[in-house]
Design a protein around this nucleic acid. Sequence first.
DNA 1: ATTGTCACCGCAAACGTTTGCGGTATGGTT
DNA 2: AACCATACCGCAAACGTTTGCGGTGACAAT
Lengths: 335, 335
Amino acid sequence: MKPSQISLRDIAEALDVSVSTVSRALKNHPDISEETCRKVQEYARRVHYRPNAMALGLKQQRSQTIGVIVPEIVHHFFSSVISGVEDLAYGSGYRVMICQSNEDYLREVINVQALADHRVDGLLVSISKSTLDQQHFRQVLDQGVPIVFMDRISREIPSDRVITNDYEGARMVVSHLLGQGRRRIAHLAGPQHLCVGKERYQGYLRALKEHNIRLDEERVIRCDTPARVEQKKAQLLDLAGRSDAIFAVNDFTAVAAMRLLQDNGFVIPEQVAIAGFGDDPIASIVRPTLTTVEQRGYDMGREAARLLIKRLGEEGSEAYQTKTFPAFLKVRDSG
Amino acid sequence: MKPSQISLRDIAEALDVSVSTVSRALKNHPDISEETCRKVQEYARRVHYRPNAMALGLKQQRSQTIGVIVPEIVHHFFSSVISGVEDLAYGSGYRVMICQSNEDYLREVINVQALADHRVDGLLVSISKSTLDQQHFRQVLDQGVPIVFMDRISREIPSDRVITNDYEGARMVVSHLLGQGRRRIAHLAGPQHLCVGKERYQGYLRALKEHNIRLDEERVIRCDTPARVEQKKAQLLDLAGRSDAIFAVNDFTAVAAMRLLQDNGFVIPEQVAIAGFGDDPIASIVRPTLTTVEQRGYDMGREAARLLIKRLGEEGSEAYQTKTFPAFLKVRDSG
DNA sequence: ATTGTCACCGCAAACGTTTGCGGTATGGTT
DNA sequence: AACCATACCGCAAACGTTTGCGGTGACAAT
């Protein structure tokens, strides 16, 4: 029971041939006799030989690995994205290294570097909320590591992108609320330096304008997590008292708000309608079920991986693509 | 703008010194003059030099990386575990490679091999539901890669383990239901070849016995996912009709069952009490809130990583440990 | 002038692969 | 007998590091 892994050398010595012969025999190189191939392969199988990925990567200057950085895997959307990435990547012979930034800029920088150190062939990234500076991305790009941004994309960095039509999704769902007769619609907004936050806010504005309703800025609150809902409890209850609908930037915030309101005697949706964004599984579990916008995480992950691997395959740099996934309105019971 | 990464050689040539000098200068080796150190470090910083992790790993015969395999990261418990692992690992200078088996045996085998190929220094594993054969684990163990099992542990393989006291947790929660006067308690059980499924079932049995209630085998159904709840809808409704409480092996199954019952006119908990296991965030979101058993994923992840890294540090093989985390009863509104 | 002591640095091997090239035997043609 | 293919295999370099050892020059002590 040796605590070490078999190398080509071990096989070569055991069979009294050279390392190169073993290497070639394992891939059925025509220069090697069938006899030798058979013997080598048989022995290799018997001792469970597995090539050293690090040595391979060093030699070929690529790791057949793509790195993924998302804010938090606990969110269903991101874990769906990851599943999509994994499925496509595995199917194309790539492995996947997953990291989470925990919405922390520093952690994101460290992750980018760690993945670059491991010489991943490319990166799939969803930017953290606290990231303002984007030098770390430029750096790996300059080192020849392509990046495809997903959902939380960078506006500054030219690259492939995969996004949901956040603007249209938000417009649709707010428009739906308006169509139900709601007029005083509040918005729990995400950070405006992120595309998703901004686009959804813009969609909200657009819908209001289309219905000739003028924006009441007091009805827009920066609040995009259950923790923030708890924190701004008083303000939210006050807001709910003078509104007839709430559109939250994501589903878990919407659900948290719904709970807060219900616990304080509001009847949903009769008094206040609520809508979210993302179609998290939780949206179909809460009562009333949550009206929201479907966002196809799995498909987005697949597409992002596809774009990346395509770019890895080509020499010259093709023009960058932005793939926009349509948003689907999911009308349920909350509004 | 070369699409390639800086190596020690590049620095050496630029500064007209040898590669070894650069290597030593970067780590302030006493053999190198301050002057040279300064020049090298400055230049390295300027061109954003980063050591090649593959070359490093090859040379030192360890990757400073630990591999993690969990069934599905969408489950809050497992993503908490991962966060715990990451935090401790990063703090100890290790990187983390995350894989999910999707509860699929083949995927698990592939993941184990891929991680072994990358020469991770050790493995943290939560076994997939469909895994019966465990040869793939023995194999990497024989290659000298230690494994710490978490939650979904292996009974056959001697190793370090980190688990929750599933037996006691289940006993407590069922005992609580009995204390509330419930007598006809059904159990939605997990697969019995997994420790968690078996232990929780045993805890259920134990609680019954303690209250001198004899087991009605018709009240135990193999059902541990929302999908299965949907699938066995009729059977569950029938069961609910002749029971006054349900104990599900995990929270999302409990919630799915709760929804099914509510949609069919059952009043929870008045007619049927419901309890789950795990204290998923969803447990506090549904109404009535779900009585369940808290399972500290984050702490378990940390502990597993700690055990693994400790084992990596030592030469001789210390005795294997099994760290059991206590279970905490969370009484809420559903039972 | 010889020797010794440092401070500073380079050579080269090694980690596990892949691969271009060259080598040896075998057999068949002239 | 000389030559040429062909089939099969090994040598060695390279990928980017680390590190033991040896080397060089300066300076001081004999």
